[in-house]
């Protein structure tokens, strides 16, 4: 790395802050009392968060989002890794066809399945349930494709050595492939988690019961029902918005490099 030019560094900092200013300001606003906000004064409070979490049920929405995104990630990454392993290491009848069908899902607009999936889940009574939120999201063609490419880069000699020692294919997957693919699996898990966390249209149609709202639905509803009479209670809405952003924001700060690498690996390869 070259030594820093302090002027450039300062400019970059200002540009970054300016770019993010709407979000930064919304976080700032979430700590204002509504009266102070509309009067253009300062008044620090945590009351907006207390109301969002208590009266407006955002603790529950946060829990729902964590459960749904967590399970989708766990199941989704397991399915994708298993399939990727088979696609990368076995040649079997219909294997190419199934792989093509997996890759083709990347081109298929997800909205075509909206109405049929709604009807299917209604028929089996899974609307308004965690299962209804989770099941349509656990098959991730992109993750399977990406992991298959990655696993193909792992030397096959490692598998063969393990088979010589009497390992089963499941052991090879678990003891050799998974540990060696850890960076790829981590980026894909992150990708699935973020996608599901931010998912909006499916929970919007699949859930009517308030106790099952995810954060996204809860926030959109809170903004739309307009809790301030006449004037929108923006500080309250922004507190809810901050709660919705925060987990991904924290995760982002922890693993930014990982995430960026994963995304570019997928795109450029």
């Amino acid at each position: 790395m070259k030594p820093e030019n302090p002027i450039l560094a300062g400019l970059a900092l200002v540009a970054g802050l300016l770019f993010l200013s709407p979000v930064l300001y919304s976080i700032w606003m979430s700590f204002q009392t509504v009266d102070a906000y509309y009067a253009g004064q300062l008044g620090f409070t945590l009351d907006n968060y207390a109301r969002a979490v208590g009266q407006y049920n955002f603790a529950r929405y946060l829990l729902n989002s964590l459960i749904v995104s967590g399970l989708v990630t766990l199941i989704g990454i397991t399915f994708a890794t298993m399939a990727a392993y088979a696609f990368a290491r076995y040649s079997f009848r219909g294997g190419n066809f199934l792989f093509a069908a997996t890759v083709a899902t990347l081109m298929i607009p997800s909205h075509i399945s909206l109405i049929p999936n709604y009807l299917t889940l209604a028929k089996v009574g899974l609307l308004d349930s965690y299962a209804g939120l989770i099941l349509p999201a656990i098959s991730n063609g992109f993750a399977a494709f990406f992991l298959r490419q990655y696993i193909r880069g792992i030397p096959k000699a490692l598998d063969e050595a393990a088979y010589m020692d009497g390992a089963t294919s499941l052991q090879v997957l678990w003891r050799i492939i998974v540990p060696l693919s850890r960076p790829a699996i981590a980026s894909m898990a992150l990708y699935i988690f973020i996608t599901e966390w931010n998912n909006y249209i499916w929970p919007l149609v699949a859930v009517g019961k308030q106790d099952l709202y995810t954060l996204q639905i809860g926030l959109a509803r809170l903004y739309r029902i307009n809790p301030g009479e006449g004037l929108i209670d923006w500080p309250l809405v922004m507190a809810a918005s901050t709660i919705t952003i925060l987990p991904v924001l924290l995760g982002f700060l922890l693993v930014e490099r990982h995430l960026v690498r994963g995304i570019t690996m997928g795109a450029v390869k």
Binding site: V23, I194, W197, N198, Y200, L215, Q216, L219, A220, Y223, V237, M238, S241, T244, I245, V248, L249, F252, L259
Partner: peptide, 9 residues
């Protein structure tokens, strides 16, 4: 990577 709903709000 941020929530689209939050950004929209």
């Amino acid at each position: 990577v941020t929530s689209t709903v939050s950004i929209a709000v």
